[in-house]
């Protein structure tokens, strides 16, 4: 169901939290604006984890903030 028209990033703010329901699974993938990621089956638990930023409980945080040029172009 999710092909060429699948949305990528939608909101343009600097501190956007994102939850993708992984196609073909029952899993949700949460991504914090700091780059930390976690998969979960329960949206309540996943939001709690996302909101705990910067305390992501040992998940290695890979900073993947957009490059300054991308932000400037908005």
């Amino acid at each position: 169901m999710t092909g060429p028209g699948a949305p990528t990033r939608m909101l343009r703010g600097e501190h956007v939290r994102r939850v993708v329901w992984l196609p073909g699974t029952d899993l949700l993938r949460g991504t914090c604006f700091c780059g930390a990621e976690r998969d979960a089956e329960d949206p309540v638990e996943l939001w709690e984890w996302l909101l705990a930023h910067p305390d992501h409980g040992g998940t290695p945080a890979v900073p993947t903030r957009p490059a300054p040029r991308e932000l400037a172009s908005i």
């Binding site: 169901m1 092909g3 956007v16």
Partner: peptide, 25 residues
């Protein structure tokens, strides 16, 4: 298909907006 299609959700707390996207191909 509406109920079957996965969604993507984004939240921007500072801007105060919740975005939910469902794209059925």
């Amino acid at each position: 298909e509406v109920a079957e299609t996965p969604i993507t959700t984004e939240v921007d707390d500072e801007a105060g907006v919740v975005y939910v996207s469902r794209h059925m191909d």
